[in-house]
Structures are given as structure tokens and as C-alpha cells.
């Protein structure tokens, strides 16, 4: 799991795993669970934003051009966006 810096050894584990830096949960990049990732075909996308609404992880956002993409640091590859996208603009693609 990428970005977060782990304690180098067990002696460096904070007592009781207390995290002293508030708001640091975002550093934990949980996207490594993913087996497939969503890929958007913007020719088919009608910018309805349904994928943004249904994403249980809240990791889909609207770009400045009005199209959507997933933050792969947190996307678990659940495929709900793909399932719900009625113009069928999202495909799940195997991780490389």
C-alpha cells in the first residue's frame, strides 16, 4: 500500500497505534486492493454524474471539462459505477 510511511520496525510502532496527526487517514492509500479499474469512454459519457453519486468510496470526481474520473489511490475496483452507468461509458479493465 503505497504512499504512507510505515514504522520501520516494531519498536517504532506508536503505543496502542495512536495516530497523533489529525486528518492523516487520507495518507492510507487503500486502492491496492483493486483487481480491476474503471475506464471512461468520454464519447459515450453524457456527464450525468451518476457514477459520482453511486461511488461508495467517494473517489469519483468531476474534472474541469465536466467529465468524470476515479482517484486510483482509493478506488477499490468494485465496479458499481460501471454497473450503474446507463450509457455504458465505463468499462472495468484488469489491472496491468
Amino acid at each position: 500500500m503505497a504512499a504512507k510511511k510505515w514504522p520501520e520496525n516494531w519498536q517504532n510502532v506508536n503505543r496502542g497505534c495512536v495516530v497523533f496527526r489529525p486528518g492523516s487517514a487520507g495518507d492510507y492509500h487503500t486502492g491496492s486492493w483493486r483487481a480491476q479499474q474503471p475506464v471512461w469512454d468520454n464519447v459515450k459519457c453524457i456527464k450525468c454524474g451518476l457514477c459520482y453519486i453511486v461511488c461508495p468510496e467517494g473517489c469519483i470526481s468531476e474534472g474541469s471539462d465536466g467529465y468524470y474520473s476515479a482517484d486510483l489511490d482509493y478506488c477499490k475496483g468494485c465496479g458499481i459505477c460501471t454497473h450503474e452507468c446507463w450509457p455504458r461509458a465505463i468499462k472495468m479493465v484488469e489491472e496491468g
Binding site: 514504522p7 495516530v19 489529525p22
Partner: peptide
């Protein structure tokens, strides 16, 4: 502070 945190296979 956060207590009772999440820790997977890496830690």
C-alpha cells in the same frame, strides 16, 4: 488524536 486505527498486512 486517532485511536483504534486501521492496519493491514503491511504493519
Amino acid at each position: 488524536v486517532s485511536m483504534g486505527t486501521f492496519a493491514m498486512n503491511d504493519v
